[in-house]
């Protein structure tokens, strides 16, 4: 089976195109699937994570997946970020060191994720960001990563990668899984079996909402990230099943995609030149907390 994959950018149509691969291969099992990228003029490196969420499902169904006819520019991007290594194609040294390479992490790999960030975010092509910004960014990534490990119910792991765009002073980092999706969890929790993907994402983005069971409070992580993104002037995108959600300083919107993305993907884009302090209140003491 041969499928075409065109230009992939980190936006609704990029996610929709990746989900299209999943839709067209839904019932394919123990087959050969060739992704033909001859019409792909650009592939934003961080989008390797959601693409692999689709591919991991195909591999789980014992399909042989290959990528062919990559234009040289696209091949360079995907070899530098080590994505093509999972298709046994040689990697390319990232001389500019602006890539946080594609990596598959197990659900229990919180420590490993920390080592990964230590390795690829320090003293490389990625600019020195303020201490406060680095901390908030890393906290946000951990909130998303741990959310994925708790909620995805996927054995395939978590797929991560990132890319720094020096001209735009933007750093994108994407975390994807091939799990059940936000809709499924929210449907079960709210006992609303017909809830749609967009509504489910909106529910999950609201402060205090969590599908975590066990009578524990939660649902703060995504709200904290939104607050951070608002101050930073960045962007967060959440894609899960038919839902596409985007939040930035310009506002937020949710849109139904034509295709069903089989899992969940969160992309954070930050403005690396931000120097905000992120300390909003007067210094709190222990007795002010409880």
């Amino acid at each position: 089976m041969k499928l075409n994959l065109g230009t992939i950018r980190s936006n609704c149509s990029g996610f929709n195109a990746i989900a299209d691969v999943a839709v067209k291969t839904k019932d394919v099992w123990f087959d050969s699937i060739e992704l033909d990228l001859s019409s792909c003029s650009f592939f934003e490196a961080n989008m390797a994570a959601p693409l692999y969420a689709v591919i991991s499902r195909l591999r789980d169904d014992l399909n042989d997946v290959s990528i062919s006819n990559l234009p040289s520019g696209v091949s360079t991007i995907l070899r530098k970020n080590k994505f093509l290594s999972v298709f046994n194609q040689p990697e390319l040294t990232d001389t500019n060191q602006t890539t946080l390479p594609f990596k598959i992490l197990k659900l229990t790999a919180g420590d490993q994720f920390n080592d990964y960030l230590d390795t690829y975010m320090r003293g490389r092509g990625i600019p020195t960001m303020s201490e406060a910004l680095t901390k908030r960014f890393r906290q946000s990534l951990f909130e998303i990563f741990l959310n994925a490990t708790i909620h995805s119910q996927s054995k395939a792991g978590i797929f991560v990668c990132g890319q720094f765009y020096p001209n735009k002073h933007r750093l994108d980092f994407t975390i994807a899984d091939a799990g059940v999706g936000i809709r499924e969890n929210v449907r079960q929790y709210t006992k609303m079996p017909k809830l749609n993907s967009c509504k489910a994402i909106e529910w999950a983005m609201a402060e205090g909402n969590t599908t975590k069971t066990g009578n524990q409070p939660g649902g703060l992580g995504l709200k904290l990230i939104k607050d951070f993104i608002q101050i930073n002037g960045g962007k967060i995108q959440v894609v899960s099943r038919f839902g596409y959600y985007e939040f930035s300083a310009n506002g937020e919107f949710v849109r139904k995609m034509d295709n069903d993305f089989p899992g969940t993907c969160v992309n954070i884009e930050i403005n690396t030149e931000d120097t905000s302090s992120y300390c909003l209140k007067a210094e709190l003491k222990s007795e002010d907390i409880f």
């Binding site: 406060a132 901390k135 205090g208 703060l220 300390c279 209140k281 709190l284 907390i289 409880f290």
Partner: peptide, 17 residues
């Protein structure tokens, strides 16, 4: 101080919950 703020958010959320 920023983690104290984080803890305050967590505590307020828990009280509400």
């Amino acid at each position: 101080s920023d983690d104290m703020e984080l803890l305050k958010r967590v505590v307020d959320n828990a009280k509400k919950y």
